[in-house]
Design a protein around this nucleic acid. Sequence first.
DNA 1: ATCTGTAGCCGGATAAAGTG
DNA 2: CACTTTATCCGGCTACAGAT
Length: 249
Amino acid sequence: MAVFCVNAACPAQLVRRVEYFVSRAAMDIEGFGIKNARLFVDKGFIKDIADVYYLNRDKLLALEGFKEKKVDNLFKGIEASKAQPLERVLTALGIRFVGREVSRLLLTHFDSLEAIAAADVETLEAIDGVGPRIAVSVYDWFRRPEHQAILAKLKDAGLNFVAARPSPIEKAQPLSGLTFVITGTLPGVTRSEAKAAIEAAGGKVTGSVTGKTSYLLIGENPGGSKFTKAQKLGTPQIDWLALQGMMRG
DNA sequence: ATCTGTAGCCGGATAAAGTG
DNA sequence: CACTTTATCCGGCTACAGAT
């Protein structure tokens, strides 16, 4: 059994909470990981987990190693996370003993955060799979004023507080799941145009050849290193013309 | 005994900086 | 201007501990 610091503003705990909030298991915010969590808490940008949604763009840009593109991606990831289902939001709150599975379990009995917040210990404990420890932990969490303030901020930010409907099926895209690396000059298009086209078709473009690269897109005067690496790995090659054919389906 | 949560390690992807 | 290099961070995997 671990010892817990009771101080709600304890910096070490705060970092831990933010790390968890942002992690793949919880809100899964792209471009936001452990390092950023520590940094932002350190700089005082984040004082509770809800502050993740109230970051200031200009302050971020003033930081070492943060420029337009990186900050853009970060904000895009944060925006996208607002659409995460309630199950993840509940997980992300960091209530002790409540991880992904227990969150799912709770949501089979309640259809909103408010409903869980309003439940008493007996009601919670009556759920199969929830023992006294979980029940008390959940109950206590929602009673704390500082937590209620966090919930209000999160709700203002636009997070899901009600159980989500199943999401509509995305239409099949010809290049989905494929990763491309571009080398050389492409006939008729710039690199960024080619990249945009590939992404529009559901594919990805990366900068270096690895085992996960699906195709090396060859242009004129290809560079040496990507080419040799692709050969070593046996990565298939393709030219712009053939790729355009693929994108049409 | 089973299942959930936590911690650490490793490979891959991305961005910034540097070179011809 | 396109490409390579370098550094950093994300995300998957594995192993371990605690709870039911």
